[in-house]
């Protein structure tokens, strides 16, 4: 489903359909998921359609720019570095591109959304919540619902630390895709309560394409931080 297509584009599978029809000289974008259809008229002389996974922070509306992935606690010894495999929720965006510019026409997901508070209500942040299993090798995933999140954890503290949460800033997320989506993140643990997180701008395997990012397009260069300081518990 992911990729770049011309305006004569249709995809249908298991009750889901997406495509653009030409009606009365105009293009109409239609997407049907779970029996609900979204329609949008495009006034364009033609262009390209780009379908790719984006930062999972847009549905049901933009409430937060943070993703919190919760997993079973793991204990890490001082100085250790380990890569674990988690999952992240998939949200798919449909862009239309023409004349050197692009516009989002739709964002959809097979997942239900749930939000949570990271930290205290006066100092914390609202974050999209996602529960994940921990694996030590890439697990089998449902690519429509989950992407592969590899997390390189480094414990720079001089004592054992338990980790069960990862918070990523949407402005720093770098998603790559082929048939499924992947993201590579890192976490540097400073103490039992504090860690810094971020994403590598690199694919997990050769042949992957980089997703068009919604948050990077909205960011002001040099102002938004792509890293996040988890200072209210890990």
């Amino acid at each position: 489903m992911y990729g770049t297509y011309g305006f004569a584009f249709h995809y249908e599978k298991d009750g889901f359909s997406i495509g653009i029809d030409q009606e009365n000289g105009r293009y109409v974008y239609r997407r049907t998921l779970d029996g609900r259809t979204r329609e949008r008229t495009l006034i364009s002389s033609g262009g390209r359609v780009i379908v790719n996974p984006v930062e999972p922070l847009n549905l049901p509306k933009e409430v937060s720019s943070h993703l919190l992935v919760e997993f079973e606690p793991i204990s890490i010894e001082p100085g250790a570095r380990e890569t674990i495999f988690l999952t992240f929720p998939i949200e798919v965006a449909v862009f239309v591109a023409a004349k050197g510019n692009y516009e989002v026409v739709d964002i959809f997901s097979w997942n239900r959304q749930k939000y949570t508070l990271y930290g205290l209500s006066d100092r914390g942040v609202i974050a999209r919540w996602w529960g994940s299993k921990v694996s030590f090798s890439p697990p089998l995933l449902n690519p429509l619902r989950e992407g592969l999140l590899s997390l390189a954890i480094t414990n720079t503290a001089n004592h054992w630390v338990d980790v069960s949460r990862l918070v990523l800033d949407g402005f720093g997320m770098k998603i790559y895709y082929e048939d499924s989506a992947t993201m590579r993140a890192w976490m540097r643990i400073a103490s039992t309560m504090v860690a810094e997180t971020g994403c590598y701008d690199a694919p997990s395997s050769e042949g992957q394409h980089k997703s068009l990012e919604l948050y990077t397009a909205r960011s002001i260069a040099g102002i938004e931080r792509s890293r996040y300081m988890m200072d209210q518990g890990i």
Partner: peptide, 11 residues
Amino acid sequence: IQDHPLALREP
């Protein structure tokens, strides 16, 4: 409550 996306999981 659990089914509502914006009813926070935590607190």
